[in-house]
Computed example of a mutant assay.
Amino acid sequence: MDLRNHDLKEDIREYWSKRSKTFDLAFGHRIAPGPELDAWAAAVRDAVGPAPQKVLELACGTGEVTNVLLSLGHEVTALDFSEAMLDVARAKHAGNAQVRFILADAERTMEPDQSYDAIICRHLVWTLTEPEQALADWFRVLKPGGRLLVFDGDWAKLTPLGKLASLAVRGLERFIGHDPHYDGAMSERHADIMKRLPFGDGLTIEKLVPLVEEAGFEAIRLPSRRPIAVAQRREADLRNRLRTLFYRRFILVASRPR
């Protein structure tokens, strides 16, 4: 491990641990039952198939994607390197024998070779300190034919439409006030961490696909994320509907060769 990354990793752990108690209150983190949960479940089914699988969930946070996976009948090992996040996730899924929560580093999982049918992560890849190392590890723990499913986005810059939406949100907040939970995600601490990351200037498909290919994955697909965004907007207020337009988000699916 590059020791230069040690302090950065600790800063990341501390940041997410401090956000654990209120994380589900920030728009875009909680996956609401109903249309939004259904949209996430459909994206997972499309990526890994309808049959129950042995799934490794990376950076599970408070266990929201875990809930999606469990709703589909998968056997889940959910890891995070924030004990505070895991405490929330364990409480949320207490008594469910289909999930095992472990404290571990998503970049070096320490899980056995070829032991999972699928690996799934949401909003993790942009935080990686050693993306090549992480992808090599994920390739290692997948069974031949296993699938990698990534939900992520470019959080460093607004899209052209996002810039207009951001201006609209600022104007709206003059009347309804600021959302402290959302602002927490864009704090100075968050910005300081981001600028020190390999993807600090933005994670894009154009950057990620070559790294995934170099790690040995094949059959790379980029399914549309639009159904998830549409489902989020159905229940959201105006401010949060506008927020779904801010950033370029994507889904990536890839396979370990058989």
Rank of each mutant, 00 (worst) to 15 (best):
R256C: 09
S71P: 09
F199V: 05
V230A: 13
C60F: 03
L3F: 14
P33W: 03
H6M: 08
G200K: 10
R30Y: 09
M186V: 11
N67H: 09
H93W: 05
D154A: 00
H6W: 10
G73A: 01
L252I: 08
L222G: 15
F199C: 06
A229H: 14
L245W: 13
L25K: 15
W40L: 11
A156W: 00
S255W: 00
L69V: 04
G73N: 01
S115H: 02
D2E: 10
R108D: 15
M194D: 06
I12W: 12
R196F: 08
P223W: 07
F151P: 07
R122C: 07
M85E: 02
D24C: 09
H74T: 07
D183W: 06
W155Y: 03
M186P: 01
T62V: 06
L203M: 04
L72W: 00
Q232V: 02
M1C: 15
P180K: 12
A185D: 14
V212S: 03
R122L: 10
Y247F: 13
Q53A: 13
L203T: 04
R233F: 11
R258F: 04
E111A: 12
F23N: 04
L103T: 09
M110K: 15
R196M: 05
R239T: 10
L197P: 00
W138A: 06
L86V: 01
P160R: 12
A231F: 01
D2C: 09
A26N: 04
E173I: 11
E188S: 15
F101D: 11
L172A: 11
V55I: 06
E36A: 14
K92I: 03
W138M: 04
L70P: 06
L149Q: 02
R100W: 01
W155M: 04
A236G: 11
T129F: 07
M186T: 13
K54H: 15
W138G: 07
D87M: 01
S17E: 00
A156N: 07
T159Y: 07
L197F: 05
L103Y: 06
S255R: 14
G34S: 03
A215L: 03
T77H: 06
V99F: 02
W16C: 13
R30G: 12
L197R: 00
E206D: 12
E213K: 09
D152Q: 02
A229K: 15
E132G: 04
L149P: 00
Q232L: 05
I12R: 14
D87R: 04
L124G: 11
I228F: 08
A51H: 10
F23L: 07
H6Y: 10
